[in-house]
Computed example of a mutant assay.
Amino acid sequence: MDMLNQIFLYTHITAGFIGLAAYWVPIFAKKGAVNHRRFGKAFLYAGYVVVTAAVLSIGTRAIRYALSDYSFEQLESFWGFAIFLGYLSLVTFIMLRFGTLVLWEKKDPTKLASAANLALGYGAIIGSVAVIAYAVLVRPEVTVVLLALSPIGLLVGPQIVGYFKGRETSKRGWWYSHMGAMIGAGIAFHTAFLVFGATRLFDIGVEGPFAFVPWILPTLIGVPANMIWERHYRKKFDDPKRSKLEAPA
């Protein structure tokens, strides 16, 4: 099982680097152009591989530890890590999937309101609640990190459900949703890289009061960036954000 876990781990790392490299091309490329679509797909598929490999890696280790004589207390750091990475993988998958789905039906998103698609939104909410419950009840070493990142699902889950149920009032709702979802997936990618990749690759050790900076820095940058970017495009399209009551019939 150790060899199998190593395969999953190196697959995860390789796909992660490919995804990180591909991510920035569509960000700056002309939207809808060849490079935007080509590298966007590369990021999408790399993301799916990253998520799958991460889940399989966590799963094989969890099975091995469950069959061992270790107590829960002895493996507390692993379970905290597993919860964090599992939640990060869930959010990444949901963002990638939602960001792709909104391109399928731009005029009437309610046509996408299948049980499987709505499960993306509800899954994000349930994932957040589960992480919060684990952090509060168990209080692992990474409690601060789990509580800092857990609201993501509570924020994006209702937005996804609302989008599929037709609560988006703008005709370009698919544009803002696609952009926000991909930025969200990018936040997850960069969080994983800073926490698990950069610290080992460049031998960077952040200690003391700044120890949690790598865990939350992408979120602190990405969320405001998404808000600024959406505001920019709404101004460009002369498309101010309206409530359902203010939307034109």
Rank of each mutant, 00 (worst) to 15 (best):
T52F: 14
L96E: 04
F93G: 11
F81A: 05
G59M: 03
F84E: 06
T60S: 14
F93K: 06
F98A: 06
Y65I: 05
L67P: 08
S71E: 08
R61F: 06
V91D: 08
Y65T: 01
Y65N: 05
A82V: 04
T60Q: 08
V91C: 12
I58F: 05
T52Y: 03
R64I: 09
A82Q: 05
A53R: 02
L90R: 01
A82Y: 05
S71L: 08
S77G: 13
I63H: 11
T52Q: 02
A53F: 02
E73D: 15
A62D: 12
V50F: 04
G86Y: 00
G80L: 10
F78Q: 05
V55W: 10
S71R: 09
A66R: 11
L88Y: 10
S68V: 06
T100V: 08
L56C: 13
G59V: 08
R97D: 13
T60P: 01
T92G: 09
G80H: 11
G80A: 10
W79Y: 15
S77T: 15
E76F: 02
L101A: 12
T100F: 15
G59W: 07
F78P: 06
V55Q: 04
Y87M: 04
Q74H: 07
I63P: 02
V51W: 01
L56T: 02
Y70M: 14
F84A: 11
G99T: 09
G86F: 00
S89H: 03
G86N: 02
Y87H: 05
F84L: 14
L88W: 10
L90H: 07
A53M: 10
S89N: 03
L56F: 11
L56V: 03
F81H: 15
V51R: 00
S89Y: 04
S57V: 00
S77N: 15
L88Q: 12
R61H: 06
Y70P: 10
F81E: 10
F72Q: 12
G99H: 07
S68A: 13
L88P: 01
F78L: 09
A54W: 00
I63S: 10
I83L: 14
E73F: 08
V51S: 00
F78K: 04
I63R: 11
G86T: 00
F84Y: 14
L85T: 12
S77Y: 15
S57K: 01
T92W: 09
F93V: 03
I83E: 11
S89W: 04
Y65A: 01
F84C: 01
T60I: 13
S57N: 12
L88F: 11
A54P: 00
S68H: 09
Y87R: 02
S68K: 09
D69C: 06
S89F: 03
L85V: 13
S68G: 13
A62T: 15
F84R: 03
S68W: 04
G99F: 06
F81M: 11
I94M: 10
L101F: 07
Q74M: 08
L75K: 10
V55I: 15
Y65M: 12
F93M: 09
I63A: 13
G80K: 05
M95D: 10
R61N: 11
F93Q: 05
Q74W: 06
A66F: 14
F81D: 10
L90E: 02
D69Q: 12
A54K: 00
V55G: 04
T100R: 08
F81W: 12
M95P: 03
W79G: 07
L96Y: 06
L101T: 12
